[in-house]
Design a protein around this nucleic acid. Structure first.
Length: 225
DNA sequence: AACCAGGAGAGAG
DNA sequence: CTCTCTCATGGT
């Protein structure tokens, strides 16, 4: 029932905004670092922090480079130095700790080679066990860094769905709703759809669904109801 | 000048 | 399980 509605929302947004090209980043490790840094933080501020990390030699310029070597540099640098570099992203003390937690986990699991062998559900549970990686960050990492068919729910998603009849307010329910809505597609197609869908929901959320910028009347999704 | 951004954890009830 | 509080910089 709401299955077709979910697809309708996706196609309206796709027609309106087109491909968003997420996730910005030159390597998978940079995608993960960005996912942690952007927790409750404007992406503009994250870019400044990423720039600092890049100059400090903490971001691979491509996936051809050994991510494990970069991960060890975080551990060598430590919380103090790391916090100073990511200061523009806010919550720098927490996020420095979170980044170190992930890098320690990453090295211990054998980097992308080791983690890449795990089944999606197993990998998700392992990511969630890292202090500082919650549901949204874990799913962002699964989708954008590991290219697993996982839909990423965020505050915009719940807000937008709520304004169009589908009032869940529950992260897992909203996630399964979208994943089930596209369950007929093969894995590669779902990765593409979930990638664009989440980016599009953030886009329309920023433009029309913000609290201090309530342009609901101009939202392209109004053509549904 | 309050309000919020591509959240998460800890604690209370 | 659902609130509530904290963490902090930078843009509107």
């Amino acid at each position: 029932m709401s299955r077709s509605k979910v697809r309708q929302i996706f196609h309206i947004l796709m027609d309106e905004f087109g491909e968003q090209g997420w996730w910005p980043g030159r390597s998978r490790l940079e995608v993960i670092v960005g996912a942690i840094l952007t927790q409750n933080t404007a992406w503009k501020n994250v870019e400044k922090a990423l720039e600092n990390l890049g100059y400090a030699g903490l971001l691979p310029s491509s996936d051809e480079e050994d991510a494990l070597e970069y991960a060890r540099r975080y551990l060598k640098l430590g919380r103090e130095g790391l916090a100073r570099l990511i200061k523009p992203a806010g919550f720098f003390n927490q996020k420095a700790e979170y980044l170190l937690n992930f890098m320690e986990f990453f090295v211990g699991e054998g980097g992308f080679a080791g983690l890449g062998r795990l089944r999606t559900e197993t990998l998700r549970k392992k990511l969630l066990s890292v202090k500082g990686i919650g549901r949204e960050t874990a799913d962002s990492i699964l989708l954008y860094a590991f290219e697993r068919p996982v839909f990423v729910v965020d505050a915009y998603t719940l807000r937008i769905f709520s304004r169009h009849d589908m009032d869940f307010g529950n992260y897992e329910d909203a996630r399964r709703l979208v994943e089930d809505a596209f369950s007929d597609l093969d894995e590669g197609e779902r990765v593409r759809v979930f990638n664009e869908f989440h980016a599009l929901l953030v886009r329309v959320g920023k433009d029309y669904c913000r609290k201090h910028n309530p342009l609901c009347s101009a939202c392209p999704l109004n053509s549904m109801d």
